[in-house]
Amino acid sequence: MSLALVFDYLVSPTFLRGAMMTLLLTVCSLAFGVLIGLVVALLQESRTRTGQAVTLVYLWLFRGTPVLFQIIFIYNVLPSFGIRLSAFVSAVLALSLNEGAYMAEILRSGLQAVKKGQRVAGLALGLTSFQVMRHVVVPQAARIVLPPIGNQMIGMLKLSALVSVIAVEELLLVANQTASATFRYFEALTAAGIYYLAMTTVFMALQMLLERSLDPKKRQRARNVPLAERLLGITRAPAIR
């Protein structure tokens, strides 16, 4: 057991690259996941029959199968249909499609939480539908969806470790490869663990700052989730699948 080695791993280019890859996977998948979720949420709100059918099938597929299955399927099965994607693109595709299915639900609940009367009041003032969306609905919905989206962000960071299965050089794969080569499991995995904890902590801090900046009264709300609960993921909207 060598703390010096843990430190060496922490500052080594390999681990740094692994951590950056994990971060990149998380950010990309989350961004596309939010976009997909938004499209799905709006399709569901639109109440057109095709929109409903398409979203239903999508949600059924991606909420009804394990993410690990989706990752492996996209990487290994799509090529036989002539769709050849790099491991990284496959990983982001699988993670964002999976994320979108959960994000749709979060965004929809946020939009629905803003009562119809609020939109009517905005329209009655002479604002356009877009202005009502932008200045009345979205600011209110944002405050509702931000805590669950923060949870999803932390969940995604952890979920991204799954793509090591298709050989994307993210943090866990790097740690595992290093450990197998040197038999220094404790040191390699401890270094990876420290990176994960550092990243989740930064995410949580960002989330809290963002939540506070969205609070018009700039005051700490009683319902702010305690740090321990965030860390343990025992708040609303579970990010577990």
């Binding site: 009367g117 609020q118 009041a121 905005g122 600011p139 209110q140 018009p216």
Partner: peptide, 9 residues
């Protein structure tokens, strides 16, 4: 409106 509908934010 009956329920005021002020924007709470």
């Amino acid at each position: 409106f009956q329920n005021f509908e002020l924007f709470p934010h």
